[in-house]
Computed example of a mutant assay.
Amino acid sequence: MQTNTLKAHSQNQWLQSYYYIRAAVSVIWIALAIFTGRHNPVIGAVLLVLYPAWDALANYLDASKSGGLAVNPPQRFNFIVSLIVAAAIIWALTVSMNATIKVFGVWAIFSGVLQLSASIRRWKHSSGQWAMILSGAQSALADLFMFKQASGDMALDVTTVAPYAAFGVFYFLISAITLTIKNGRKNRVAC
């Protein structure tokens, strides 16, 4: 029993750091999109490719702290899908920004469903998962909004994705803060 408690505590400590890192990277991405990518299409395009590439790397890192990709099917699939989407975005950028946003939107569905699945799997052993479950559901629903925008004739750019990224920041911070509070309580009790 002691080993399971230590393992859960270690996992919660990792997730706390991981969620803060995810939030910080997203804030940087949003700032770059708004202040640079909007005005420079090349930087905007690079940012659109980097978003799913970073998600793939983040899923890989998270899975490696939780037994590896082999024992975490949602993260393994999200890792693979995110890499494929980064490549698909490169292709879509040669077609149009609307096509790019549609690809990003389809990825939002898969990414959200896989995040939802990973969070549900962690529910019993890790704290702060309710926000990640909401984030996964919201991510899946974001596709509808992105498709609507991409199907219209409004001018789109990298900032079209910024609200989606901002919701991610919100949910990652809620989870990180929840874990910070719970981990702090557990540390005080252990002393």
Rank of each mutant, 00 (worst) to 15 (best):
N78K: 13
F79G: 08
S82C: 08
S82A: 15
I84C: 13
A87F: 09
A87H: 03
I90W: 03
L93I: 03
T94R: 02
V95G: 01
V95R: 02
S96Q: 02
S96R: 00
S96V: 04
M97F: 06
N98K: 10
T100H: 06
I101G: 07
I101F: 04
G105I: 02
W107S: 09
I109S: 09
G112H: 07
G112W: 04
V113I: 14
L114M: 10
Q115M: 12
Q115E: 11
Q115D: 11
A118P: 00
I120E: 02
K124N: 12
K124C: 03
H125L: 12
S127P: 00
S127T: 11
S127M: 08
S127E: 14
G128N: 09
Q129E: 15
Q129C: 07
Q129L: 06
Q129H: 07
W130F: 13
W130L: 12
M132H: 08
I133F: 04
L134C: 13
L134N: 08
L134Q: 05
S135M: 12
S135V: 01
G136P: 03
A137E: 03
Q138F: 13
A140N: 06
A140L: 08
D143R: 12
D143Y: 15
L144R: 11
F145D: 06
F147H: 13
K148H: 11
K148I: 09
A150S: 04
S151G: 15
S151T: 13
G152Y: 03
L156V: 11
D157E: 10
T159E: 04
T159G: 02
T159V: 13
T160D: 05
V161A: 08
V161H: 00
V161G: 00
A162I: 00
A165Y: 01
A166S: 10
F167L: 15
F170H: 10
F170N: 13
F170R: 13
Y171P: 11
Y171D: 11
F172M: 15
I174A: 13
I174V: 15
T180K: 15
I181R: 12
I181D: 06
I181T: 09
I181L: 13
